[in-house]
Simulated assay, not measured.
Amino acid sequence: MFLADRRAPTSGPRAPAAADVDPVTGRGRLSYPRAEYLFKIATATLDPHRQGWTLHQLRHSASQHLAQAGRTAPELQAKSRHQHLASLGRYVRLGEETSARITAEADSAQRRRPR
């Protein structure tokens, strides 16, 4: 959760819902646009195009790393909250090593024990 620099108001019309306040620090959750703006500013020097990355790109990068670590499609679906498994395909691009490992694991001849 991305948090504001200041503590959230505790009463009045601008007081956020309790779920939007960190119970330890009392700071409020940033809005999505504000969090994305700050993330883009923080990552601009790392981005080859110097524009910074979006939170959407961060989410998909995390899914890709989980896939490469061997997480199953249902696990990726649960983490990313995609409704359909097919929608994960456009974001999760497995490398050649991962594809080769999956193919080898699925090969029935490789799984048989020598007698």
Rank of each mutant, 00 (worst) to 15 (best):
R6V: 00
R6G: 01
R6S: 08
R7L: 02
R7K: 14
R7I: 07
A8R: 01
A8L: 00
P9D: 06
P9Q: 04
P9R: 04
T10D: 05
T10P: 00
T10Q: 02
S11L: 07
S11P: 00
S11F: 01
S11M: 03
G12E: 03
G12T: 07
G12K: 02
G12I: 08
G12F: 01
P13G: 06
P13R: 13
P13W: 12
P13Q: 09
R14G: 00
R14C: 01
R14L: 03
A15L: 11
A15K: 10
A15R: 10
P16F: 02
P16I: 06
A17R: 15
A17E: 14
A17S: 15
A17T: 12
A18C: 08
A18I: 07
A18G: 02
A18L: 11
A18R: 15
A19N: 11
A19I: 14
A19M: 10
A19F: 06
A19T: 12
D20H: 13
D20V: 03
D20M: 14
D20I: 03
D20C: 08
D20P: 06
D20G: 06
V21K: 06
V21P: 09
D22C: 15
D22I: 04
D22F: 02
P23S: 11
P23L: 09
P23V: 13
P23N: 14
V24T: 12
V24K: 10
V24F: 10
V24I: 12
T25S: 15
T25N: 13
T25A: 13
T25Q: 09
T25V: 07
G26Q: 13
G26E: 11
G26F: 10
G26N: 06
G26R: 12
G26T: 05
G26W: 05
G26H: 10
R27Q: 01
R27P: 01
R27D: 00
G28I: 00
G28K: 04
G28C: 05
G28N: 03
G28S: 07
G28A: 04
R29F: 05
R29C: 05
R29H: 14
R29D: 06
R29P: 03
L30S: 00
L30M: 05
L30I: 02
S31T: 13
S31N: 06
S31A: 12
Y32D: 01
P33Y: 08
P33H: 07
P33L: 11
R34C: 01
R34T: 11
R34F: 02
R34G: 01
A35C: 02
A35K: 04
A35F: 04
E36Q: 09
E36G: 10
E36W: 09
Y37D: 10
Y37N: 04
Y37K: 14
Y37T: 06
Y37G: 04
Y37W: 14
L38W: 08
L38D: 13
F39G: 08
F39W: 11
F39C: 03
F39Y: 15
K40Y: 10
K40N: 09
I41Q: 15
I41F: 06
I41M: 14
A42G: 15
A42V: 12
A42P: 05
A42W: 09
A42R: 08
T43G: 13
T43Y: 09
T43N: 13
T43K: 08
T43R: 07
A44G: 09
A44L: 13
A44H: 11
